[in-house]
Every structure is written in structure tokens, then in C-alpha cells.
């Protein structure tokens, strides 16, 4: 299926958000996630199923003012 990750189209076979993060190399990385604009906590990533067209945000700590 085709989804959008951080604004870019991604073709994935991952069924869950947790599987997607592993597939994209985020395993062990400190990130926060949102699906279609809603925050999805770490504890819910495994049970969060992905659908075609989902918009995923993967954010990490960054410099800020």
C-alpha cells in the first residue's frame, strides 16, 4: 500500500505503525509519531493498523527557540 511518511510517498507492506518504523530504520530511535494528525503513543504503535493513504509523522528532538 501507499502511505505518506513525513510528507513523502512510501510503498510499504507493513501492517502496523510499529512494523513500519522498523522497516524504515527507526528501530531504537527516539521518535514520536502521529497518524493522520493525531498523536499515537509508543504503547499503541503495535496495535495501530495502517491503511492506504495514511499520513504518518515521525518526529525527533531538534533545536528550538
Amino acid at each position: 500500500m501507499k502511505i505518506i511518511v513525513n510528507g513523502k510517498p512510501v510503498e510499504t507492506g507493513a501492517q502496523s505503525l510499529a512494523a513500519l518504523l522498523e522497516e524504515l530504520g527507526y528501530g531504537g530511535v527516539v521518535v514520536a509519531t502521529a497518524v493522520n494528525g493525531d498523536f499515537t503513543p509508543v504503547a499503541r504503535r503495535a496495535e495501530t493498523e495502517l491503511k492506504d493513504g495514511d499520513q504518518i509523522e515521525v518526529l525527533a528532538p531538534m533545536q528550538g527557540g
Binding site: 510528507g7 518526529l59 528532538p61 533545536q63 528550538g64
Partner: peptide, 19 residues
């Protein structure tokens, strides 16, 4: 200190060093 969140690439992992 103030910090922020930005999109992270699974390859570059720029935010991890900062954190």
C-alpha cells in the same frame, strides 16, 4: 533550554545526537 520536534529520517537520525 527550549527544544523542538522536527521530522526525522530513519537513516540520518539527526535528532538523536542533539538529544
Amino acid at each position: 533550554v527550549t527544544v523542538s520536534l522536527r521530522r526525522e529520517s530513519g537513516v540520518e537520525r539527526a535528532g538523536q545526537g542533539f538529544w
